[in-house]
Nucleic acid binder design. Structure first.
Length: 890
RNA sequence: GGGCGGUUAGCUCAGUGGUAGAGCACCGGCUUUACACGCCGGCUGUCACAGGUUCGAAUCCUGUACCGCCCACCA
């Protein structure tokens, strides 16, 4: 009488949200500083409040969730802290785009109203993100959720800013910066993305003043010539040696420029002479400083030409380029134009071509912060996984420039600096000052900080820093950071620098870098390609468990993930397989039957074998997770569950479980034990279906392990993660089982080859079986009958040859299956020949090895022994096959 | 220009010195009472190329080719 009736497909839509709500309600994911258990901490890379999560987020949440659930089940006090990032420029752009649709700009509604509007959007976006995280099953501690603009996090930002300023590590100054004319803000070097562009190299002739001749310069940006204040050549360049120190006349504007010598100039490139525009090129800016050249800004913050551009004033910079080229041509100053490919900087957020401009901005001095951050990774206080990412990190860290942190935006942390109108003083304070020491009124800086400034503090600002909270004391440094490769520089590097400086220690011990999720052909997902996968839709279709499993199985370290439909389908089918195997187990149970105890050492081979295997598997899965081999953990579980537990164990155990008496009791006990354990092993990866089933398994009181706070219902999410049980390890059972499986498979293969239906019983005669083999197959007699349709099993020392009997060689046993009226001699001979060819080839290879005295002398003893044993076996097989062939061809 | 990764079955990928693997796809057969999102059986490979080390190389070393990613102030 089945205890349960359940659908044959797992109804994730009805089940998943129910369990997340349950876990939430019992506080299963809440960290407990008073627990006395070892702490294990991760902070979630806070998603931007720009909308919804994409498939990359799904991966970056699934992997840490697996770790969090696993460590929790291992008994750690897990804190996985969630939150979101205000994402300054990105979020501001989203809301500006919304306004644009209404025909308005942020200036139309003003700073205050604009900020209010962004707050509304951020709140909505946060709600969406939280919903998605719950759907995915992320086991974060919602009671500690943070947002980078929260009051206490903003206080941390001010504390860090003020401290760095007072130590001279933050400074304000007029330098050349990357400027986005569309966003109308300065950008850091990282926010500029370089793209290969087809451009032109314009050769422009600058006439010498006071004597004959000219110097031709090559430039990709002719419009900037209007701001030239010199021409530079290399000091050793003989072509221009005489010209150094003389003056040139700037075409179009007629200003005079000096010719200077500078080692920066590469005589090999272009004409070997470079126009110098200190106001619009970073190199020229430096060169200008070396030669004390004036800066003439000809492009303004909107990308238009300034008054200094003379007749071109007011033109957009692209129109100005065309106009300048035309004018140069007219004047006869344009010598030639060549095609030229080069990298052009674009704004990361809006793709506008970045304009280098001289502007007053705030900077963080990087060198003093970078040094300890490099050391921390070098001496392994922080470990990168995969390790090779450390190289990338070093590469970047040793070459970075100071960090421009001021942004001319409205959405973000306002820089805590005040300017006095009466004197020149700048006040940098954590709390808003009343007035200047001189009595003058104060104006706060209108700029906000780069969003990554606050993100860099995330591991400790979220725990209450600078207040010395209990959480900070217990959970910092965090144990592990799992994040994407795209933000190693933006975020990881800055967390390390700022964590060491302000957190007093590394922000995390290990940083695991996840790969990019791509489409099934390895293409980057993008809206324009139309290959974007929406994780919410996908989860609705196949369930969160299936998506999680697919991502996990594909998460090979250091490799991008090609997410294919086939994999997703396979993953869904696996979840369904778990569901159906669970249904089977539950259907075997009878009402009010207590869960029996697993005997120390069951007599039945199948039980001993599966206990051996689950024990091995437990160790393997634990090891895999320990080394971040998520793919290995998923693969081992998949293979075990489907191709060992379901395909073999469940099939083998059916008759026992359906019998009566002690055999049934043992079978039910082992079945439940293994099922319980494998569900727990699977739970970190596929939390929902495992909880749904686990809740229905009967439990013995002394095995109750799913501790919950306050003694509520049990939950698998707090049950113990299985480990290897040494008493169950049984290599003998493994060998016996392998032999039985090989026999059953061989017989099934014969049936398939000759089209013998299962309905037709067959006789199997085993020739030459050793005592061991004989006892193995004798014991498995019933299994052979049930799983291979063997009606009669005989053992003989010598079997008379019969052309209507199919013979197969299985190790040292010859397997005879009489199939009168079915066997075709020629087809059979062809099969034997093929098998023989294989054996001959292998035998030859092994024999060659053994014939080599160096092999015997130098190879490991066990390898030699193994080869010898194999070659003996192969010789036997070969002889047997040759005999068969001879008989068949007779 | 510099750095990093990849090249293994039709596709997507495991496999770090000892007889080449998985999933999907494909072929054949199954109304076997957990599952057709299933069961049983099967086919599939110059492990990119060229050298080297080694008794032995997909695996270690050197070089080449191709693909991808990141960084970069040669106008």
């Amino acid at each position: 009488m089945p205890k349960v009736e359940l659908s044959t497909t797992f109804a994730h839509r009805d089940v998943d949200s129910k369990w997340y709500a349950f876990w939430d309600s019992i506080g299963a994911f809440r960290a407990d500083p008073t627990s006395g258990r070892p702490p294990f901490t991760m902070v979630l890379p806070p998603p931007n409040v720009t909308g919804r999560l994409h498939i990359g987020h799904a991966l970056n949440q699934t992997l840490p969730d697996i770790i969090a659930r696993w460590r929790r089940m291992k008994g750690d006090d897990v804190l996985w802290l969630p939150g979101t990032d205000h994402a300054g420029i990105a979020t501001q752009n989203v809301v500006e785009a919304q306004l644009a649709k209404e025909g308005k700009s942020r200036h139309d509604i003003g700073r205050e109203a604009f900020e209010a509007r962004v707050w509304d959007w951020a709140r909505e976006s946060k709600g969406t993100i939280i919903g998605q995280m719950r759907t995915l099953g992320s086991s974060v501690d919602w009671s500690r959720e943070r947002f980078t603009l929260d009051d206490d996090l903003s206080r941390a930002v001010r504390r860090v800013f003020v401290t760095l300023y007072r130590e001279g590590l933050i400074y304000r100054g007029k330098y050349i910066v990357n400027w986005c004319p569309r966003c109308r803000t300065a950008l850091s070097d990282l926010e500029v993305v370089h793209r290969e562009t087809h451009g032109k190299l314009y050769h422009v002739r600058y006439p010498l003043v006071g004597r004959e001749g000219s110097i031709t310069v090559a430039t990709t940006r002719p419009e900037t010539m209007l701001g030239d204040t010199a021409v530079a050549v290399h000091a050793d360049d003989e072509r221009y040696r005489d010209a150094v120190g003389s003056r040139l006349r700037l075409p179009l504007l007629g200003r005079e420029l000096p010719v200077v010598a500078d080692d920066f100039v590469d005589p090999e490139f272009g004409t070997g002479a470079v126009k110098v525009t200190p106001a619009h090129d970073p190199n020229d800016f430096e060169m200008g400083k070396r030669h004390d050249l004036p800066q003439v800004a000809v492009i303004d913050e909107d990308g238009r030409m300034t008054e200094a551009a003379g007749p071109f004033a007011g033109l957009d910079r692209w129109k100005a380029r065309a106009a300048v080229v035309q004018a140069l041509e007219r004047e006869g100053a344009l010598e030639k134009v060549e095609d030229h490919r080069h990298a052009v900087g674009h704004c990361q957020r809006c793709r506008t071509v970045v304009e280098p401009l001289v502007s007053t901005q705030w900077f963080v001095k990087i060198a003093p912060l970078a040094e300890p951050a490099i050391d921390a990774v070098r001496d392994k206080r922080i470990r990168f996984v995969p390790e090779h990412w450390a190289k990338t990190y070093f590469e970047w860290m040793t070459n970075i420039h100071d960090w421009c942190i001021s942004r001319q935006l409205w959405w973000g942390h306002r820089i805590p600096a005040w300017y006095c109108d009466a004197c020149d003083r700048i006040l940098v304070e954590e709390e808003t000052p009343d007035r200047c020491a001189c009595g003058g009124a104060l104006r706060q800086e209108t700029d906000v900080l780069d969003t990554w400034f606050s993100s860099g503090l995330w591991p400790f600002s979220t725990m209450g820093w600078p207040t010395p909270t209990a959480d900070l004391e217990r959970y910092y440094p965090t144990t592990l950071m799992i994040t994407g490769l795209d933000i190693i520089f933006f975020w990881v590097a800055r967390m390390i620098m700022l964590g060491l400086k302000f957190g007093g220690d590394v922000p995390f011990r290990t940083v695991y870098i996840t790969s990019l999720v791509r489409d099934e052909h390895g293409q980057k997902m993008s809206k324009s390609k139309g290959n974007v996968v929406n994780p919410l839709e996908l989860m609705d279709e196949i369930g969160a468990d299936a998506l999680r499993f697919a991502l996990t199985a594909l998460a090979s370290p250091g490799m991008d993930i090609a997410l294919s439909e086939g994999r997703l389908r396979g993953s869904r089918q696996f979840v369904n397989k778990i569901w159906n195997a669970s249904r089977f187990v539950l259907m075997q149970l009878r009402d009010d039957e207590p869960r029996p105890e697993v005997p120390e050492r069951p007599a039945e081979l199948a039980h001993r074998w599966i206990l051996h295997r689950i024990s091995q598997l437990s160790a393997e899965v634990g090891d895999a997770l320990d080394t971040f081999r998520f793919d290995v953990a998923a693969d081992r579980l998949y293979h075990f569950f489907w191709h060992e537990y379901a395909d073999w164990y469940i099939e083998l155990v059916k008759p026992h479980v359906q019998a009566e008496g002690p055999a049934r009791e043992t079978a039910v006990a082992v079945l439940l034990e293994v099922h319980d354990r494998v569900l727990r092993l699977l739970h970190p990866i596929i939390p929902f279906v495992t909880e749904e089933v686990w809740q229905q398994l009967p439990r013995r009181p002394e095995l109750e392990t799913g501790r919950t706070p306050g003694g509520q219902r049990q939950t698998i999410t707090l049950a113990t993660f299985p480990t290897s049980v040494p008493a169950w390890l049984d290599e003998g059972a493994a060998a016996d089982m392998a032999a039985v499986q090989a026999m059953i498979t061989a017989i099934r293969t014969i049936r398939a080859e000759w089209g013998v239906p299962r309905s037709r019983p067959i006789t199997v005669i085993l020739e030459g079986a050793s005592d061991l083999a004989r006892s193995r197959f004798e014991t498995a007699r019933d299994d052979l009958t049930r799983l291979a349709g063997v009606a009669q099993l005989e053992f003989q020392d010598q079997v008379a040859r019969d052309p209507e009997t199919v013979v197969r060689v299985l190790g040292d046993v010859r397997l005879h299956v009489p199939l009168a009226g079915i066997v075709d001699r020629r087809a059979e001979a062809a099969r034997i020949e093929k098998a023989l060819a294989k054996v001959v080839k292998q035998q030859a290879a092994d024999a060659a090895k053994l014939a080599n005295p160096k092999f015997r002398a130098r190879a490991a003893a066990d390898v030699v022994a193994e080869t010898e044993a194999r070659v003996t076996g192969l010789a036997q097989q070969r002889q047997a096959l040759e005999e068969l062939l001879e008989e068949l061809s007779r």
